[in-house]
């Protein structure tokens, strides 16, 4: 599968389009239907982060690129705004009762839990990148 790329403005109204793009690419790559939702959700959370935090309310560009590498379906989300530090996001305690639970941090939690690998890169020219990997397990 050749890489597919989508460039959008950093606006939350673009999330539906991004989901559709990523789902179509994943299906074309042969990702099992049960895993398409996981990819859709992890990508949505990564793009939401970029849109809400990278440009401090200004409009910027968010790029989503999908490709197949070995047996992984890979999604790379790139922005050119403020660097995102995943270590500063609190890890939610999903075992704690709700009353004592901080409701934040779920977005990053889902990005980690719903994929088989996640990387964060920041490089002036290449921008801030989140790379999400999901193993392609075809139905037998």
């Amino acid at each position: 599968m050749p890489p597919f790329e989508l460039c959008v403005n950093s606006d939350l109204s673009q999330l539906a389009r991004i989901s559709e793009f990523v789902s179509l690419s994943a299906r074309r790559a042969g990702v099992a239907e049960a895993d398409v939702y996981d990819i859709q959700m992890a990508t949505d959370e990564a793009c939401t982060n970029s849109i809400e935090h990278a440009y401090d309310g200004d409009t910027g560009e968010v790029r989503i690129c999908c490709w197949v590498e070995n047996k992984d379906f890979v999604v790379r989300v790139t922005d050119f705004g403020k660097r995102f530090d995943p270590d500063k996001v609190p890890v939610p305690d999903t075992k704690a009762p709700l009353e004592s639970r901080d409701i934040g941090g779920l977005g990053l939690f889902f990005m980690r839990e719903l994929t088989d690998g996640i990387e964060f890169h920041s490089d002036g020219e290449k921008g801030n990148q989140v790379i999400l990997r999901k193993r392609i397990s075809r139905a037998e």
Partner: peptide, 13 residues
């Protein structure tokens, strides 16, 4: 069809 972490937060609040 789709329910993100932001929607989950609204539900939990």
């Amino acid at each position: 069809q789709f329910f993100s972490s932001a929607a989950i937060r609204a539900l939990l609040m």
